[in-house]
Design a protein around this nucleic acid. Structure first.
Lengths: 145, 145
DNA sequence: TATTGTTATACTCTATAACTATA
DNA sequence: TATAGTTATAGAGTATAACAATA
């Protein structure tokens, strides 16, 4: 067992997580960037496109396109901003809110299926290993080593 | 520490891994799908576009586009297939082979920076935790539970 | 002057369908 | 008849730059 083996395991796990996300997206016929926008909206409430651009780290132009698509699919609406007539309030519809709710349930169900049978000690062991790996990654990416 | 907390940690780690990949791609001005193709080519040697389509799980049409881009950027060439005149042998150039080699080095360097200081016991602990998480994921995705 | 969001333009990834050349 | 790869067409995500309306 080498450090490279360990990194390969991390990558393998990352691929599995991604694959599981894609399953949800295909079932609900929504793309990854749009899910990301809906999720952000679910956490923050009605938001300007500018604030969504900052949150998703994409350009405002890109948000225009994502919101266009989500308006067409019935997940969000553009409402007038209460105080700033330049801005719009992107708002979840019932359909959009239901999808976010589904996403939360699905996440909790996956967690229960994966780890629900573990006792507290095992949970703590796994969590500790992941915490330390995450901390190492963050340190490396922030400081360069 | 709940099962949902643990899944959140897995997701957080997955995001960090992805972010690190993107750093490499931006440095080398190559996109994720093209890196994937180059990596496959590095492992398999000169390949037909058909076999690349199977390996990357995309359509043959898509491979045409990726190879077009990589020919333009000088990372691969299209060579005649030795025995089948319908097919082409996509082949790494020196530049392409150097990039794959960089990717391997970068991967090993990241592993060393992240985990190089761990003793065998810690490596085994981390690996065991990841192995079990991976095994649970795989079982879940294959059998539905 | 600065900010919000849009139109204009362009590139990449992705897909399906129809077609050519070859097997 | 089947296979390898292309052209044709389309949609989604991404970016920069120029612009209109509003602050």
């Amino acid at each position: 067992m080498t450090s490279t083996n360990l990194l390969d395991k991390v990558l393998a796990l990352s691929l599995l997580v991604t694959a599981d996300m894609q399953r949800f997206e295909q079932e609900h016929k929504v793309t990854t960037p749009r899910i990301h926008l809906l999720w952000t909206l679910g956490a923050a409430g009605p938001s300007t496109q500018r604030s969504l651009a900052d949150a998703l780290e994409v350009t405002p132009r890109n948000i225009t396109g994502l919101v266009d698509g989500l308006v067409t699919s019935g997940h969000v609406t553009r409402e007038p901003h209460p105080t700033d007539r330049r801005a719009t309030h992107v708002t979840l519809t019932e359909v959009g809110a239901a999808l976010v709710s589904d996403l939360r349930s699905s996440h909790a169900a996956l967690a229960a299926q994966l780890f629900g049978d573990l006792d507290d000690g095992r949970l703590a062991d796994f969590g500790g290993a992941l915490d330390e790996t995450i901390a190492r990654f963050v340190r490396l990416m922030e400081t360069g080593s």
